[in-house]
Design a protein around this nucleic acid. Structure first.
Lengths: 155, 155
DNA sequence: TTTTTAGTTTAGTATTTTGTAAACTAAAAA
DNA sequence: TTTTTAGTTTACAAAATACTAAACTAAAAA
């Protein structure tokens, strides 16, 4: 178990890459990953900087982004000037919520597509209707599931 | 209803933007949108180029991408050199499938995170387990739903 | 009061992405 | 055989993104 550290770094890279795929900026993607993977749940600015080997401004910028999107938070300790950053992973239901919102966006847009299209290709139009219905069905199934999950966790 | 054409263009822009958000290149995003919104289900290279006001190489490139990802297809007419491009929207279940695959990726990665993390923060670890279970549950619910949908369509 | 700490902001550079014009190509038409 | 059509490829330009080093700042410590 000597090179767990190596595996940990690989995992940060891996999560970094998939975070980038969903539109996160590279350094932010890795800071977010690091705070999820590290055993020290709370890391300081300089620990992050040290681990990821990037500049102060990059860390500063990444932290600003992640704080503003609520993906990390920080705590302070009395008599200590540093901020201790922490992933808000526990709030993953909020991320799922955003995903569902995105799906609703898609749904609404395809409603508009349907409204504007003529009947020249009924099969095509029907498939759009199917997609809309599918999204509706997923929403109806997943939404309450998510709510239940959240409530269970909160009590 | 004189300026339906205007609305149609706005819709192409709107879909273009949300397509970009999921990682599609700008022109490809709009070509894809155009083929979904246009009443003429099939459009030629030059009609696309004309409508979107972009260069030949941009259209050529966008079409290559969309063909390779299976988001559009084309047909030819005997005695006509042009290709007629068409959205493969009807195959939206394949896109959902890819989404589910992506979710599985996430799930597997968080399994790895769990395996590498110590027990120093059990609450944090539990929330990762919750996420994994949630993804599993969604998979179990949505996957068969999707299969059913597809089978219904195919017969 | 001066210095140190913990960052933030600025100004500039490197890289990547997106797009264009124009040269090129292969097949069909004349 | 020559020309036209329907694109593709190449070579380059413009713009956006992602950094960095270094100057700066505000609060706490000495």
């Amino acid at each position: 178990m000597a090179d767990t550290e190596h595996q940990r770094r690989e995992l940060v890279e891996k999560i970094g890459v998939i975070n980038e795929k969903i539109g996160m900026q590279p350094v932010a993607a890795r800071v977010n990953a690091l705070l999820q993977v590290s055993n020290h749940t709370m890391l300081t600015f300089d620990e992050i900087r040290e681990e990821l080997q990037v500049s102060k401004s990059s860390v500063s910028n990444a932290i600003a982004i992640l704080l503003s999107t609520g993906q990390i938070e920080y705590f302070t300790k009395p008599g200590d000037r540093k901020r201790y950053f922490r992933s808000t992973m526990e709030k993953w239901p909020r991320l799922i919520d955003k995903l569902l919102e995105f799906a609703m966006n898609y749904r609404d847009i395809y409603k508009q597509v349907l409204a504007i299209r003529s009947d020249s290709d009924p099969t095509f139009n029907q498939s759009i209707k199917d997609l809309i219905n599918f999204i509706d069905y997923v929403m109806e199934t997943v939404s309450p599931m998510l709510r239940e999950w959240t409530e269970k966790r909160n009590k």
